[in-house]
Design a protein around this nucleic acid. Structure first.
Length: 592
RNA sequence: GGGGCCGUAGCUCAAUUGGUUAGAGUACCGGACUGUCGAUCCGGUGGUUGCGGGUUCGAGUCCCGUCGGCCUCGCCA
């Protein structure tokens, strides 16, 4: 080793030790006669002093130091003079009196300053940081996040190891499947015109492993989906993939409950009571308008459709009597927080983003009266009735959407999340874990005029719903469960179909005919006939877990080398052109 | 595919209603300084206002297009 210690470990216990440190020059402070540098490595900062005792040659070299120069320093650990300790640094009681110094490597002047932070408002733009990701990753906050990620994955692996899971790797080059997200395709050279697909998840392989008798499988698996990106969505992401044999949904959920509690304790020092709360999908949609509700705060949706149907207010009445819903939320005490202009913004929001036709609102005055431009359309007793439905108190702001169940759900859920944030209805660092269960098996795809699997086509229906597969697919509920953290889907899984006939039946319903099923999933259907055990599992979004556990607001900050919103890597400039010879070998012609 | 925000010095930002020579902090370069820790002080370099076009006597500012980044709806089993 070129060093005896890291830059984070020396303290007053090491006084007078002769040490060698290596690292990057974080900052330098040249006082003429004396010169200080903060030497940085992954482990911390240590102050190095060059003074009157320093040899002239070393002093001259030290004056050349600039940010990010890589040096090796030998010296003696000394206590800092009384009153000059730096309480902000773990190493702040001591400093290194440098005797020799070697410049291991120079650095160009960095294109942005690494000591900038989000807090001081001078942090370089994200595009620049992504282009020079190796510099960005030197910043302490980034290193802390990568370390946290490492610790979380280590805890996950240890946890599943302790519970008899075995880690099995599955292929990245696989077969394109018809359902689900767009695939990333990889052309085959040996089979011109044929393509591999990168896995959207190792779903089929892990089921096959259950058939193979591996009983409990776990993998930290890279997954790929060629869909548009979001703040919490990357085209390439990492799942903690799990599958278990001879289990019920409760067994899988219980296993993950234990993992949640362990990580919350170890990472956040939080005691999470188990079992985690559960609610059904239908309940989540009714009460929160979303299948992954943020339960850090209340603000439940109130349905006043029957009331609306009785009123003479045309907008409400027509929706209520034609199968739609009139629902709303009560933003408690928020009446003063939203001016007419503020409410206009909320209105614009639900119209633009969720296709609502408008937003009705009432401000609850001190007298208890409801003030609103539409108030004149209602009888006094009607207003009193709706106020009571929302348990309205003076100062509250009621926001109502009249629309289909779907639109009102989306709009009110969006409003709820936005208000929760704007009104600070939860504290930074507050965490809420819960399950949403019993998802519908199928969603009707209007565009395709057919049923589509809500989760994936291998999901088992609840036993009591099997008969309805034929009669009323929309009413079938799946043995499915999503883990929700702070309003984010942090994982999802199902009990799988282990019966070939039932699987065949589901494929038929999804419009996957026998020939296509045999072609794409033949191996699975065949495997199910060779003694497949009942099995089920779950996949957790590791990037999102890291994001949520570290309180970060975007997933790119949790990934060492992420892609931009247009799925580019600004550092490597991927995706890029390829040699025409490569294309020829693959039998590919580019159409421009 | 749709909606929105943004792009000015290496970096972070400012620039009145469209008005004269586009500024500040920081970084960088030079100098001073023995206890700093966002060191301080003095001086200096640094600009095709993303790119292309248009309107105008005049465009960083207005319009159109385009490229890039971010947020979002759709999409994401």
């Amino acid at each position: 080793m070129l060093r005896t210690h890291t830059c984070g470990e020396l303290s007053a216990d090491d006084l007078n030790a002769d040490v060698a440190l290596c690292g990057w020059v974080d900052t330098y402070r040249d006082h003429g006669g004396g010169l200080f540098i903060d030497l940085r490595d992954r482990f911390g900062l240590t102050q190095v002093v060059f003074g009157p005792d320093t040899a002239e040659g070393v002093m001259q070299l030290a004056r050349k130091l600039r940010a990010e120069t890589v040096v090796r320093i030998e010296g003696r650990v000394a206590r800092r003079p009384e009153g000059n300790e730096n309480l902000k640094l773990p190493t702040g009681a001591i400093e290194i009196r440098a005797s020799t110094m070697e410049i291991l490597n120079q650095s160009l002047t960095p294109p942005f300053q690494l000591d900038a932070t989000e807090e001081t408002g001078d942090l370089a733009g994200e595009d620049l940081r992504l282009k020079y990701r190796y510099l960005d990753l030197r910043r302490p906050i980034m290193q802390q996040t990568m370390l946290l990620r490492h610790r979380m994955i280590k805890l996950m692996r240890d946890y599943f190891d302790e519970h008899d899971f075995i880690d099995v790797e599955t292929p990245v080059l696989g077969r394109s499947t018809p359902e689900g997200a767009r695939d990333y395709l990889v052309p085959s050279r040996v089979h011109p015109g044929s393509f591999y697909a990168l896995p959207q998840s190792p779903q089929l392989y892990k089921q096959i492993l259950m058939v193979a008798g591996y009983d409990r499988y776990v993998q930290v698996a890279r997954c790929f989906r060629d869909e548009d990106l979001r703040a919490d969505r990357q085209p390439e992401f990492t799942q903690l993939d799990v599958e278990m044999s001879f289990v019920t949904a409760d067994d899988v959920i219980g296993m993950i409950d234990g993992l949640v509690a362990k990580l919350a304790k170890e990472i956040l020092d939080l005691d999470v009571p188990l079992p985690l709360p559960r609610m059904t999908y239908d309940e989540a949609m009714e009460r929160y308008g979303h299948d992954a509700p943020d339960l850090r705060f209340e603000m439940e949706i109130v349905d006043v459709t029957p009331w609306a149907g009785k009123t003479d207010f045309r907008v409400f009445q027509s929706v209520a009597t034609s199968g739609g819903r009139v629902r709303g939320i009560n933003a408690k005490g928020a009446s003063d927080r939203y001016s007419r202009k503020g409410i206009d913004e909320l209105t614009e929001y639900v119209i633009q983003d969720f296709g609502a036709k408008g937003l009705a609102w009432f401000k609850v005055e001190a007298s208890g009266n409801l003030a609103s431009p539409i108030a004149k359309n209602f009888q006094a007793e009607e207003l009193a009735e709706v106020a009571s439905a929302f348990a309205a108190q003076p100062g509250d702001l009621l926001l109502l959407v009249a629309d289909s169940f779907e639109v009102s759900s989306r709009a009110l859920s969006g409003l709820r999340v936005r208000l929760g944030r704007e009104l600070e209805l939860y504290k930074p660092g507050q965490m809420h874990f819960s399950w949403v269960v019993e998802f519908p098996m199928f969603a009707f795809d209007e565009a395709e005029n057919s049923w589509a699997a809500m989760h994936h086509p291998f999901t088992a229906p609840r036993t009591q719903d099997i008969e309805q597969l034929q009669t009323d697919p929309g009413a079938c509920r799946a043995i499915a469960y999503d883990l929700v953290i702070n309003g984010s889907e942090a994982g999802g899984g199902t009990i799988r179909i282990h019966d070939q006939a039932l699987q065949q039946q589901v494929f038929e319903l999804l419009g996957v005919d026998e020939k296509m099923a045999a072609d794409r999933f033949g191996f699975l259907l065949e495997a199910l006939q060779y003694g497949a055990p009942p099995h089920g599992g779950i996949a957790l979004g590791i990037d999102r877990w890291v994001m949520l556990f570290s309180g970060l607001e975007n997933i790119r900050d949790c990934i060492a080398f992420p892609k931009t919103q247009r799925a580019s890597d600004l550092m490597t400039a991927a995706p890029g052109d390829v040699d025409s010879r490569q294309l020829e070998e693959l039998g590919i012609k580019i159409r421009r």
